[in-house]
């Protein structure tokens, strides 16, 4: 038992942070938002080139042979910069393809293609630019190429992750097992939770920086207890979210008995913490936080998107209620 990063993991965290801070700038993210794709193409190429997209895939298909902890580290760094890349769904799709041994399709994705994942009743993140579509059906997944699906995109509140309605209109190229569907969900939940953790931490860090500068009543507002206590409460939520994300990642990597519980906990808790922190970020910035020009709304909207992607917080808590033996909901 050692619940801290290894030296290698700390190094990956540093590399990932540097990469996202350097490339996922507000300017570039906003350009990807403005063109409707939600993808910074150059950043996506960098992520493919560094092996970050396939961090959790085996070496023989071109992956980096690491696990969920490393995947979470990268997703956290992406979330911290609200990076506009189709990382989460692509990585979730890779896990499904790997579970069913579809090396041919994994190679396509690791070659730079974008995959998306539409769970039952859900929309497909980055559906408009995806090359490969994994759609939940009959307790498993079907895999389709772009020419076999009908994609209806709507203007999405979070422009870093545009959503699309995807319908299968032609024959799929593969069907995947229930085990593959589970693998996609597990990776997806960890990635979303880690994205939320990184985003929440950024909300806190940026707000702390702001309240140390902003002067009112002849002093920096960071000296007022009303402000300090709200920031402290954000940190209380974030540290729990951090425990949740890395507990879930370790539990999956180690095949722990409580992995299922850990995954639902991480997804529900981290996404809710993000929403709380992003709301507080706007409030503590005052008027400037409500403008389009300021980045606070990028976090706020991504937090909402993290809450609903791959199941709502309430659905994940209901799953926990069943795991811990509360029985069925009364009619």
């Amino acid at each position: 038992m050692r619940f801290a990063f290894t030296d290698e993991q700390a190094m990956i965290a540093e590399t990932a942070t540097d990469l996202f801070v350097g490339e996922a700038t507000s300017e570039r993210t906003r350009a990807a938002m403005a063109d409707g794709s939600g993808r910074d193409v150059a950043l996506w190429d960098s992520l493919s080139g560094t092996g970050f997209v396939g961090v959790h895939m085996p070496g023989d298909v071109g992956g980096s042979e690491l696990g969920m902890v490393e995947l979470a580290i990268i997703a956290e760094a992406a979330g911290r910069q609200v990076a506009a890349v189709p990382l989460i769904a692509t990585q979730a799709a890779l896990s499904a393809l790997h579970a069913d041994g579809r090396a041919d399709l994994i190679e396509r994705v690791l070659g730079g293609q974008v995959a998306t994942l539409a769970l039952a009743g859900g929309l497909a993140p980055h559906g408009t630019i995806a090359d490969l579509f994994l759609i939940e059906q009959d307790g498993g997944l079907v895999v389709a190429d772009r020419d076999a699906v009908d994609v209806v995109a709507g203007t999405t509140m979070d422009q870093t992750r545009p959503l699309a309605q995807v319908t299968l209109t032609w024959a799929p190229i593969a069907t995947l097992s229930a085990k593959a569907l589970d693998a996609a969900k597990h990776t997806g939940w960890i990635a979303v939770a880690a994205d939320a953790l990184g985003g929440a931490q950024a909300c806190l860090d940026r707000t702390v920086e702001y309240v140390k500068e902003r002067q009112q009543f002849g002093q920096t507002i960071g000296g007022f207890q009303a402000i300090k206590h709200r920031l402290a409460d954000m940190m209380v939520e974030i540290e729990q979210a951090r425990s949740a994300v890395y507990w879930a990642a370790c539990a999956v990597d180690e095949g722990a008995e409580d992995a299922e519980l850990a995954l639902h906990s991480a997804k529900a808790f981290a996404a809710d913490a993000y929403a709380t922190c992003a709301g507080a970020m706007i409030q503590l910035h005052g008027g400037i936080g409500f403008t389009w020009e300021h980045d606070a709304h990028l976090f706020f909207k991504r937090a909402q998107a993290d809450r609903t992607l791959f199941g709502s917080s309430a659905q994940h808590r209901e799953a926990i209620a069943q795991i811990i033996g509360l029985g069925a909901i009364a009619a």
């Binding site: 729990q240 949740a244 507990w247 906990s265 309430a314 209620a321 009364a330």
Partner: peptide
């Protein structure tokens, strides 16, 4: 069996688990 109570109990379960992992960190 009450959906609201179930949500709150699940949240308590999550909070307790996170306490353990916070302590281990």
């Amino acid at each position: 069996g009450d959906p609201v109570i179930r949500q709150k109990i699940a949240q308590a379960e999550i909070g307790l688990r996170l306490m353990r992992y916070g302590a281990l960190r």
